[in-house]
Amino acid sequence: MNEIWVFAEQRDGKLESVALELLSKGRDLAAKSGYALAAVLLSENGEALAPELFAHGASKVYALDDPRFAYFQNDWWTDAFVSLVRDKAPEIVLVGATTNGRSLAPTAAAILHCGLTADCTQLDFDTEKKLLLQTRPAFGGNIMATITCADTRPQMATVRPNVFKKERLDGAPAGELVRVPAGLDGAACRMKRVAFVPDAGEDVNLAGAQAVVSGGRGVGSAENFALVRDLAAQLGAAVGASRAATDAGWVSPLRQIGQTGRTVCPKLYVAVGISGAIQHLAGMQSSETIVAINKDPDAPIFDVADFGLVGDLNEIVPELSRQLAARRA
């Protein structure tokens, strides 16, 4: 079946933003390939969530309703998903690289014996060879590799949140809601969730931030991180950090941006005292405008920065905060 599927992950009955981002990208791919764009939704009540998926470009929603889809459980979800893939044989399957997506996708790919490309930053379609072009950074972003899967189907890819922009269509687009039985009769239950404890701590607020100010090793201490927070406050920005700063315990690990932390792509990213190790660049280099403040003129962060300020962050950053405050006064 010539379809592009987006796995529409929901948690607690709320769609993950990355699913909507993937639908927006999927519209591009659908236009290039001529394939239809469909969302696959495992939940307790697909009808409630389908309109949001139509509004982001799905022309069809496969809704699998079952109480066992109340929360993500790798066995049941993968079983149901794989059965549907086998039944409908889509060409392309896109999955958000959330913690749950990163469980479901490799499990499904292992069963289906198909290719799976992790954390793509670009997706395109080769109209001649009819192949999904899956581009991802290799070695932390210093080399880009375009991956294809010529011989196996579906062509599966995961994409991290905030890599593509979601785009809501005008009006209230309609689509086809296809109800699919969950087909879990007698499926083994080898794991059960017995409790969920939400993070009580600070709201890091990085996911949808329009601006991010991050501090790194050069900031020097937990106390001095106040400079970064002040500048962030002046810019209406969220606070991020490099691994050096989170490892040192100056800020919560939840704020770590990079290969092993979060990915952000805000309109404005300000790197304060961050040298720009590959590890960090992987999490922020698709930001629209990048500012780097660092005392080392050869720091790799300057290679990706639109605006580079060489100097002492202890002088420049307070000056920036002061002038921004004065400007608003």
Binding site: G115, P137, I143, A145, T146, I147, C149, A150, D151, Q285
Partner: peptide, 11 residues
């Protein structure tokens, strides 16, 4: 291996 590297390029 179902996946193939089709192209490698500098960002």
């Amino acid at each position: 291996s179902p996946t193939r590297v089709a192209k490698v390029f500098a960002p």
